[in-house]
Design a protein around this nucleic acid. Structure first.
Lengths: 233, 233
DNA sequence: TCAAAAGTGTTCCATCTACACCCATGT
DNA sequence: ACATGGGTGTAGATGGAACACTTTTGA
């Protein structure tokens, strides 16, 4: 630590903030992308975002940009994902990018500009920069958190039936989730509760489905210390 | 996304890279801190790190700085923790900081400069900036990963007895970990294996302890999908 | 009365904790 | 011998997966 200049003369670098905005759309986990109109990576798809304003925080900045640029104001959850700073990641010179993960509940359909579109997260179009890798990070993060947090609240509408919820989980996790067991797991953990209401059955009959809601619509870890728990004493 | 200037004219901001370097020392989880000699936060303790070089990646930069400035070259593991960019976090103007978590195995005692020292992570001295909060993030990350990854490899020496390992886990987790069960859990997960060697018992007698090693000394998730597993089919 | 969809009960299994007991060694 | 620390066996608890069965509705 001899070099005391390090404390004040930090280097300047371009900095942008990006978002992996995910939503379950038509039973698929989808990500909001923007199509570039000019080089580099002309006509490739990239993550929404842009430069960091001079007096705003990182989370604040991405919220502002999503609202202003792609009209997404209904994020139920937003968390920081990772920062990429590889010297070669941007052809026009050193640019750091801090990526966020944002989740939009399935009942919302934001109005988005013509040059943006939702794409299946499992079948991405040609993407610019390192943004495809960032989307994969976001997907992995979501999948992991579905198993030990209540993050499902940010995918589901305020009220839902168990079979709807199991379809959201299936879309996000990529494998079947039995509604019957999901119900018990989430009830036992206290994540969800019955609203008391129910939904009339459709044309084809069937028992009316009870409506549920998440008890807390803010990220909580509900299954900490899956192993190596502290002693019960 | 009408504002296409966003793609090229990203703002410039000071950027530094910091590290929460943790090691088990005398049965306590400890963090390497540097004592500031000048304002702001004179005589407070801060995380080691400094400005990002113009042509280096983030991880590359923190490795270089730890090697050059505090002579720490033996990180068994390094991962990105979080980026802080609050406008008010640095009194001298906007500074972004990307923090890493680094782990040093317990058998190593790096030579460190006089103005740096190891402090118990659970009993931090007065710290500058938002660095105390970053240390807590690092601790939380380590604790969480101990329960679903093989990250113990980065705390333990290359070979160890189970009672030694359980003491490392206890120091990191903050609660007792029974060596007998830890052995079975880690063996079942395939994280550790016997070397075949054993350690002669000490003056006070006792059965010689078998030596173990981690099978892989690189981060792996060994307990994925603790719940909501994919169907077994 | 039958099909369809939701919900319940029950069994099975994997995995972790706790704790008693056994083993190998030094004095 | 016996104290000391390591290692094994085992019982209990937990929690999730699977699946058959029951309930409630529409046609």
């Amino acid at each position: 630590m001899q070099d005391s200049r390090a404390e004040t003369h930090t280097s300047m670098a371009a900095h942008e903030v990006l978002a992996v905005v995910l939503q379950i759309r038509q039973e698929r986990l989808s990500v909001l992308l923007w199509r570039r109109a000019r080089p580099p990576f002309e006509k490739c798809w990239v993550l929404p975002g842009g430069r960091l304003g001079t007096a705003e925080g990182l989370g604040e900045s991405i919220r502002r940009q999503l609202a202003q640029k792609v009209d997404v104001r209904d994020l139920a959850h937003l968390e920081q994902l990772e920062t990429r700073g590889d010297p070669g990641r941007h052809p026009h010179g050193r640019t750091l990018a801090t990526a966020y993960l944002g989740l939009v509940p399935a009942d919302i359909d934001p109005v988005i500009p013509g040059d943006t579109a939702w794409h299946p997260a499992s079948d991405l179009p040609p993407m610019g920069f390192d943004h495809a890798a960032i989307v994969h990070s976001g997907r992995r993060r979501l999948r992991a958190k579905l198993s030990y947090t209540n993050i499902g609240f940010a995918l589901a509408p305020p009220e839902f039936t168990m079979s709807e919820l199991s379809r959201y989980y299936r879309a996000a996790l990529g494998h079947d989730v039995a509604a019957t067991n999901l119900r018990r797991v989430l009830l036992r953990r206290g994540q969800i509760e019955e609203t008391g209401e129910s939904v009339p059955s459709g044309r084809s009959g069937g028992r009316p489905a009870a409506l549920f809601r998440f008890r807390v619509r803010r990220l909580e870890i509900t299954d900490a210390f899956a192993v190596l728990r502290p002693p019960q004493v």
